[in-house]
């Protein structure tokens, strides 16, 4: 039995970040299905003991229990990435990864809210959420446009990092909340590179080009 257990909901974009990282790092894990919709199982005991915020994902790795996709990605990179590239130690690259992880966990969470409103009828003004999510995607597109002038293909380092994994689902799933990819050429190109990462995997809403 694998040492890792992921409390998982297949349609959750934050759980997908963790599944994507686990797949790319070739880490075996047990996925424990949570009835997030319509059951909201994560908001009740006993899962509330593991994450008092009542949100997924939650990762158990031996005695370590973590919640929050970005923290989980950081743990996976430190614990299971022998190359040291996915969470680089060098100061500037490390800080850049942290900056984009923070963006993914805070500012970009509006994309998650927009999607949950659109798909699961979660509370909120769908139009306002989508508009704000589009603004966040534009900030990402602006960044990658400037990066392209230096020949860089990734958000935070000359190679892929966990920042790219944390940012990918919001863009890849944006059609779920009515934001098309037409006006984000730099993100389209970046997403193509993400798709080519060894171990890349999809989720419902992200097509698998067979």
């Amino acid at each position: 039995m694998p040492a890792l257990a992921l409390y998982n909901y297949e349609l959750d974009d934050a759980c997908y970040k963790v599944r994507l990282a686990l797949s790319i790092l070739s880490v075996e894990y047990e996925a424990i299905a949570v009835d997030a919709f319509p059951g909201k199982e994560q908001t009740k005991p006993p899962l509330l003991d593991l994450n008092p915020l009542g949100r997924l994902p939650i990762l158990r790795d031996g005695d370590v229990v973590l919640h929050g996709a970005e923290a989980i990605l950081a743990h996976l990179a430190r614990a299971y990435d022998g190359s040291g590239k996915w969470l680089p130690a060098e100061a500037a690259a490390f800080a850049s990864v942290m900056q984009w992880l923070q963006f993914a966990a805070s500012d970009l969470s509006v994309a998650r809210e927009a999607r949950e409103q659109a798909l699961f009828d979660a509370p909120g003004d769908g139009t306002a959420l989508s508009t704000e999510a589009a603004r966040m995607l534009r900030i990402m597109d602006d960044h990658m446009t400037a990066r392209s002038f230096a020949g860089a293909s990734w958000f935070a380092a000359p190679h892929a990092t966990i920042a790219d994994i944390a940012l990918f689902p919001a863009f890849a799933l944006s059609r779920d909340f009515g934001v098309d990819h037409d006006e984000y050429p730099a993100l389209r190109n970046w997403a193509r590179y993400v798709r080519q990462l060894p171990g890349f995997t999809t989720m419902p809403g992200i097509p698998d080009y067979h």
Binding site: S148, D180, H181, D182, P185, R188, N189, R192
Partner: peptide, 16 residues
């Protein structure tokens, strides 16, 4: 309808 560099070989994009 696009910059040449925005449409890489073997890719597609929507526009209006």
């Amino acid at each position: 309808v696009a910059l040449s560099t925005s449409i890489k070989p073997a890719t597609s994009a929507g526009t209006r």
